[in-house]
Deep mutational scan, measured.
Amino acid sequence: TETREFDNEEEARKEAERLRRKGQDVQIRKKGNRWELRRT
C-alpha cells in the first residue's frame, strides 16, 4: 500500500482520478487537516 498526503481535497481527488484511469484502486480519506490518498 502506498500513501501520499495532500494539502487540499481537490488535489487529492485529481490525483485519485488520474490513478483510477490507469486502473489503480485508490481511496481518499481525511486525516486531520490534510487528505491521504491510499493506493492498494
Rank of each mutant, 00 (worst) to 15 (best):
T1M: 12
T1F: 14
E2H: 12
E2Y: 14
E2D: 11
T3Q: 08
T3G: 09
T3V: 13
T3E: 07
R4P: 05
R4V: 13
R4T: 11
R4H: 09
E5M: 14
E5D: 09
E5S: 13
F6T: 01
F6D: 01
F6E: 00
D7V: 06
D7N: 06
N8H: 05
N8C: 08
N8M: 04
N8A: 04
N8G: 04
N8F: 07
E9R: 08
E10M: 10
E10A: 10
E10N: 08
E10Q: 10
E11M: 06
E11S: 07
E11A: 09
E11F: 03
A12P: 01
A12R: 01
A12M: 03
A12Q: 00
R13S: 07
R13Y: 12
R13K: 11
R13I: 13
K14H: 10
K14G: 07
A16Y: 13
A16D: 00
A16L: 09
E17S: 09
R18W: 07
R18K: 10
L19M: 11
L19T: 01
R20Q: 06
R20L: 06
R21T: 07
R21H: 07
R21K: 10
K22Q: 14
K22R: 12
K22D: 11
G23E: 02
G23W: 03
G23D: 03
G23M: 03
Q24C: 15
Q24R: 05
D25V: 14
D25M: 14
D25W: 13
V26G: 02
Q27K: 07
I28H: 01
R29H: 12
R29P: 02
R29N: 09
K30T: 04
K30L: 04
K30C: 08
K31A: 08
K31R: 11
K31D: 03
G32H: 02
G32V: 00
G32A: 02
G32C: 04
N33F: 04
N33H: 05
R34G: 08
W35R: 00
W35D: 01
W35T: 00
E36L: 07
E36M: 05
L37K: 03
L37T: 06
L37V: 15
R38L: 15
R38T: 15
R38S: 13
R39M: 15
R39G: 13
T40D: 07
T40A: 10
